[in-house]
Every structure is written in C-alpha cells, then in structure tokens.
C-alpha cells in the first residue's frame, strides 16, 4: 500500500528548505534564499507555511542593528522529513 506523500513537503521550494535545514543547526533567511535561489517574497510565504505546520521555527531578531531572521528545523519537522524520504524511497523501489 502506498503511503501518501506529505503535500507540504512535496513542493520544490519547501522541500529544498527542509533538506537544507535538516543538515544544519540553524540558517539565516539570506543564506536559505541564496542556496535555494528563491525570491524573498516566495520564500517568506513558504517559510510561514512550514512554520505554521510546526516543521520549522522562525526566530526574528537583530544582528547588530540590522533585523535578522533565522530558521531551524523542529523535532516534528525532522520526523515529517524522514517519513517523506522513506515514502519516496518506497515508491522508487516498487517502481524498479
């Protein structure tokens, strides 16, 4: 039986963000924007969706005098990501 793929993760930009955040402790908005090649507006919207689902934590603060937004993945984000990777692997294995 196929497991349904998490629609929140099965989207290019959100999956890119989650893959990046699962590998680091925390990353700034600017870093994520650079690595994912996304526009600031689009990235903001997608980060909010992930944050509302409890997959990531967004911390807004200041670095010196400049406002700074940094993100880190949450425990439930890691679990959802692992579940997604397992489901994808199953699909690919069955297809083979």
């Amino acid at each position: 039986m196929f497991e349904t793929l998490d629609p929140l993760l099965h989207a290019q930009l959100r999956l890119s963000v989650m893959s990046l955040l699962v590998s680091v402790e925390q990353a700034d908005f600017v870093y994520i924007k650079k690595e994912t090649d996304a526009t600031a507006g689009n990235l903001s919207v997608q980060l909010d969706k992930l944050s509302n689902a409890g997959y990531i934590e967004i911390v807004k603060g200041f670095r010196g005098k400049k406002p700074n937004t940094s993100c880190r993945i949450t425990k439930s984000g890691i679990e959802a990501f692992e579940k997604y990777v397992n489901a994808i692997s199953n699909y690919i294995n069955i297809k083979k």
């Binding site: 989207a11 290019q12 930009l13 999956l15 689009n42 990777v85 690919i92």
Partner: peptide, 16 residues
C-alpha cells in the same frame, strides 16, 4: 511560482 511545480519522486530525491 517554484512551490507549485510538480515534482517526480526521482526529482524529489535528487533535490534532497
């Protein structure tokens, strides 16, 4: 928008 693009399973894995 990037988030609306369809991903195949192989593409997903490559992206990750």
């Amino acid at each position: 928008e990037k988030e609306e693009q369809n991903l195949s399973n192989e593409e997903s894995l490559k992206l990750i």
